[in-house]
């Protein structure tokens, strides 16, 4: 976890620099729906400390972060921590639900394709994976709303509430990552099934089902676990778009909005939360890897 410190510093600094460099004056944006005069806008900019030099602003920003103070939003005046705490559960719910869809469909399709390799099923799975990987979420989202909410009327189109609101966005989000997982699962299964020890097992008369579940999956799933861990980052990113299409609250919409009005404290806070999430998921992936693979375990000892 100590290794996280330089990462957080780098990300925090990059975020600061990026927001500093994109053109625009938050004071001008703040007062852009008022009758404020040019002089009053300049006065507000000074009040916000935006007239200070880059090193001064950067130093103040880092010093605050060091004290664990994410600051207040320039626009809402509320503490960034409170804002994030409000939006985070929605994004986490969506990302986890999307993850479940990814894992179940990705692994399922991958296994089916590998077992029936060369058959029409295999071709169908690789077709579906390609569609999943290459379809942008904003499009598949609108398509899903049209089909399942408007034509079939199975689920609500937008918004949030109970589980029925979660199904469509989670499915759309999860499906976008499932293709990659299915591909890796299939490739890895095919590779393992060609290994000599499987031949040996088969020659000893062990049934195909038993071979698959007892010997092949255990080894073949390892690369899939890695990919699933990586896909989580992708899911967090995809959640941004999914939240917009399905009009759900969440960090994604928050960060887009905040970037668009140069609300540095909120953007920095959200990005840091994203980094920490991603690091935690990677840690979890490593632990899972260790649990699944005896070789890594003995090596680490």
């Amino acid at each position: 976890m100590i290794g996280l410190v330089p990462t957080v510093w780098a990300v925090a600094s990059l975020t600061f620099l990026a927001l500093y460099l994109i053109p625009g004056d938050p004071a001008q944006v703040l007062l852009s729906e008022s009758n404020a005069t040019a002089a009053e806008i300049a006065e507000r900019r000074a009040e916000l400390g935006l007239d200070d030099s880059l090193p001064v602003q950067y130093g103040r920003y880092l010093w605050r972060l060091l004290q664990g103070d994410l600051g207040e939003s320039l626009f809402t005046g509320r503490p960034v921590t409170a804002t994030i705490a409000e939006q985070f559960p929605a994004t986490l719910t969506l990302a986890i639900a999307g993850m479940i869809v990814t894992v179940v469909t990705g692994l399922g399709l991958g296994i089916v394709a590998a077992v029936r390799r060369g058959s029409w099923l295999d071709a169908a799975v690789s077709g579906v994976s390609a569609v999943g990987i290459s379809t942008p979420v904003f499009w598949s989202g609108l398509l899903a709303i049209w089909l399942f909410a408007l034509v079939l009327d199975w689920f609500p189109a937008t918004g949030q509430g109970g589980l029925q609101y979660l199904v469509l966005p989670a499915a759309v989000l999860g499906f976008s990552s499932a293709g990659a997982v299915a591909r890796v699962t299939r490739a890895s299964l095919v590779e393992v099934m060609g290994k000599p020890f499987i031949l040996v097992a088969r020659s000893r008369g062990i049934g195909p089902r038993s071979i698959l579940f007892r010997h092949v999956l255990q080894i073949a799933l390892l690369p899939a676990v890695t990919v699933i861990g990586l896909q989580f980052g992708f899911l967090l990113g995809g959640a941004v778009v999914t939240e917009t299409v399905f009009a759900r609250q969440g960090l994604g919409r928050l960060v887009v909005k905040s970037v668009l009005r140069k609300d540095l404290p909120v953007v920095a806070g959200t990005v840091l939360v994203g980094v920490i999430c991603y690091a935690l998921v990677n840690l979890l992936t490593d632990l899972l890897y260790r649990a699944l693979d005896p070789r890594v375990r003995s090596h680490l000892r």
């Binding site: 189109a157 937008t158 918004g159 009009a247």
Partner: peptide
């Protein structure tokens, strides 16, 4: 909130 204009008519039509 219906920020995406294309979702507004849909929400009305589906009685949401």
């Amino acid at each position: 909130f219906y920020e995406d204009p294309s979702t507004r008519t849909i929400a009305l039509e589906s009685e949401q």
